[in-house]
Design a protein around this nucleic acid. Structure first.
Lengths: 338, 338
DNA sequence: TTGAAAGCGCTAACAA
DNA sequence: TTGTTAGCGCTTTCAA
């Protein structure tokens, strides 16, 4: 059996509560006793039992991280590792641990979230995505459980939830405008799953830019694909077999763009000679495509870092009101546009 | 305050212990009372407190996942997401949760591991890497704490630890032989950080193949780089500025290979025309390079899945003895070799 | 088949 | 400044 607070107490000739206070470094304990207790801890090799502490405390010092059906698409995308990197950094700074959702289906994930909340496994939750018809957020709101969304709430009043997001609408709009500035009018859009709010925003921005410029929005220039690997390739096939091929492409994800570039190369369509391509995310390897891709850096790491920051201050200060953080984006010009 | 076992007990007119038994679905409780208790749980919206359970039980149903300094190189590499995907799947199947290490330095990570072990945060640990001078494994062994290594123990008796690995020596040897079969004799090797055991094994395999074929091992054909993004590019510069340029390259990581291919393209060296390239890992996007890369599929997902499998059976059966699992690899031939 | 009660290891209110 | 003690919510032994 492991060394407990009582053992230490005996050894140091104090009460268990005193030991507890020493651990918490309470100012009401004299330096002398602190020393004595600490020595006893060292000698016995004491380490606190975190479960006992959590039980007494109602605080776990851990954050639940919820991602979309982890097994399938999610982890394929460097977005998640990178956002977790940001989360991880901040969490570590503040002494929080990370508990990861492992569910594969929406329902499984929902069950896990319930477990985290009801079971007292975590002090707060980070939602790494926002879906159109999502049960999790309403549940969390109803429970009054601290959480922060990375993305934007949908069908939910914005000031009911703290969230960290990019201005995806604007980013997509800017990108479209950028292409028009380069002289393009036939601009294709390769988007993600329409269930995700980010996709909706991208699409809106794209359309708005065209409308502003009096360029008709053509439905056959808009394709959606969920799968990153094949998705980009399939999309290219669809778009390039049109009568009027687009001269520029907006692709909402760098990994998809790899597929797009590959397929274009296979078709002997040169980039940016025959067609320009703009992408989103600026994941590390996006520098390594040929040609290197022009892409919108959305500062993924920051999204994670900021969200964690918000969450922790929410945990520490539950009635502080909701916040909204917009992480700026930035167009990184490389070789794929002309 | 949340609904507890006592509330349920009152409602159902039984003792708390009975409720506990119903939760565990003990066979010593009559179906009738089970029904009654379950109904009471439903009505009150009961959910078990996991911390209390863990405290009483000394079991957390969670697995600690330890990766190398997460913030820097680690998560950039699709290896980790993919291995976690495998871990996640198996863990979820068995009702285990995942607790992630967040430390940035070796020491921080070591501290975290101690916390996990001493603090009773997790039931077992998954080590996602094996380093040459690692303190963690000896600690875990000394503590008799259940853990499984992905990789191979180094400087530690193999039958003291359960591990899941590829035969990296053989894979590298095969790959080298494959290149020689294609007629290459000047084969460069672009490896990772020599602190990692996998790198050592790769290098050994490479050298052995050359030796067997009576081809001298040239030190200037061997380069090591840790960083995936720039690493591949720098390595190419080094190798291609040699008097006698290699005609084939072995690169130990797909992401690095992206850098390699890019740099070669920039130098107007064609692949596989001027130089052949073989890579390792077969990460998803390795299909999306141009040319597509010939690479060794190491079945990353399986590594994670198997390791988790081993760990859980170790947790459930502590004195079952250590195991060693070798996940087979497979050369995936694509376009980058000739 | 069920209940009473002790205990897991820690914290915190209350007393001294 | 320190000690006593009652929980936190659950499991499990022992008794009935």
């Amino acid at each position: 059996m492991a060394v407990t607070i009582k053992d230490v107490a005996k050894r140091a000739n104090v009460a268990p509560s005193t030991v507890s206070r020493v651990i918490a470094n309470s100012s009401r304990i004299s330096e002398k006793t602190k020393e004595r207790v600490r020595e006893a801890m060292k000698e016995l090799g004491y380490h606190p039992n975190l479960n006992a502490r959590s039980l007494a405390n109602k605080s776990t010092k851990t954050i639940g991280v919820v991602m979309p059906n982890s097994a399938k698409i999610a982890f394929q995308n460097p977005f998640f590792p990178e956002v977790i990197r940001g989360i991880s950094t901040k969490a570590h700074q503040e002494g929080f641990g990370l508990y990861l959702s492992t569910g594969q289906s929406e329902d499984e994930i929902f069950e896990e979230v319930k477990q985290m909340v009801y079971g007292g496994r975590v002090d707060g939750i980070l939602l790494l995505y926002s879906r159109v018809n999502d049960k999790i957020m309403p549940f969390l709101i109803e429970q009054g459980f601290p959480f922060v969304l990375i993305g934007r709430p949908y069908n939910i009043d914005e000031d009911q939830v703290t969230f960290v997001n990019n201005d995806n609408f604007k980013a997509a709009k800017t990108v479209t405008e950028y292409l028009m500035l380069l002289g393009h009018e036939k601009i294709g859009f390769i988007g993600g799953n329409l269930d995700y709010v980010v996709t909706i925003d991208h699409l809106k921005g794209y359309k708005q830019a065209l409308i502003n410029a009096n360029i008709p929005v053509r439905d056959d220039y808009i394709v959606h694909h969920e799968e990153l690997e094949k998705g980009g390739q399939d999309a290219v096939i669809e778009l390039m077999s049109l009568e009027q091929r687009p001269t520029a492409l907006i692709v909402v994800d760098d990994i998809m763009t790899f597929g797009v570039l590959k397929m274009l190369a296979d078709m002997n369509v040169t980039v940016p000679g025959d067609i320009s391509v703009v992408s989103f995310n600026n994941v590390m390897i996006s520098e390594l495509s040929s040609p290197t891709m022009t892409t919108v850096d959305i500062h993924i790491y920051d999204l994670g870092y900021q969200a964690t920051n918000c969450l922790i201050s929410k945990i520490n200060n539950p009635d502080n009101g909701e916040k909204k953080v917009i992480v700026p984006h930035r167009l990184v010009k490389r070789q794929s546009c002309k």
